[in-house]
Amino acid sequence: MTIDAITAVLLAMLGGAIRVSTPFLFVSLGETITEKAGRINLGLEGTLVMGAMSAYAASLYSGSPWLGVLAAACAGAVFGLLHGLLASLRRVNDIALGIALMLLGTGLAFYWGKAYIQPQAPTLRAFHLGAWSDSPALRSALDINPLFIAGLLLAFVLHWAFANTRVGLTLRLVGDSEAAARAAGAAVIPTRVAATVIGGALAGVGGAFLSLFYPGSWNEGLSNGQGIMAVALVIFARWQPRRCVLAALMFGAAGAIGPALQSVGISSGYYLFNAAPYALTLLLMALTCSRDTSLKGAPGELSLNR
């Protein structure tokens, strides 16, 4: 492997990290908020797909991709509201409900989305931060979408807010101990519903990124399970927003390894390299989990803890 090839692969991984990570980032941040409040919403895959479809449709009709992002957030919020309210009923299991909503979301999105596979909707623009460079690889790696930056900022804001604001503390209290929250006079159910709504809205925005920026068109294979992976990343990130950023970037970079190696001519075993993101996640999970530390940081009210 020559220096050129190594540089090319590293550049592709940088580009991949920036291009591919955004949906993972938004979904995992959304899920972090929901899970911090003590609920698990496994339906975010459906919300992501629904968001992607609504964003594309809204952008097509309105001509403004940012209205598309807004539409995706609204669609996501509706799904979040549905999950939040239904999961508040007695004896409703939030995990099972999430799976049901995942199927509903993808099903509805495919059904309503039929008409939008063909047309081309206006897509989001990127900031060309690499304009100073002569290398086309670096230039394209540094085409950064505003949503990516928004996601990064959001992660740090969330990190701060969980520790330093009244809302953040209430959210964590509700998620850690329902009894304590009630004793402190916090509104448990409304907080959880609100957390699920916000989580859904963020997942919808993640979907908008898929259909309006990268790869930038709507079709039924668009997500391929990214929403499910993102929910898993939350556990990997130990419910910490800043770690979600790391996890999403790593996942995006690992996904770029397969295509990049083949493009520089290293093509044997590409099935293995294509599985890199999953293998890497498993490996890191195995390395970072031990009997003593597993699920450290998990909100106490999560149904997987009870």
């Binding site: 090319a8 592709a12 086309p136 294979g221 083949q262």
Partner: peptide, 26 residues
């Protein structure tokens, strides 16, 4: 001709990654 196999018939994100890698290679 540089070939990139994505592994399945419809993988939009991977196809976009592959296309970008190929363009990066000139």
């Amino acid at each position: 001709t540089r070939v990139i196999f994505t592994g399945d018939w419809a993988m939009p994100v991977k196809e976009a990654e592959a296309a970008n890698s190929l363009l990066d290679q000139g």
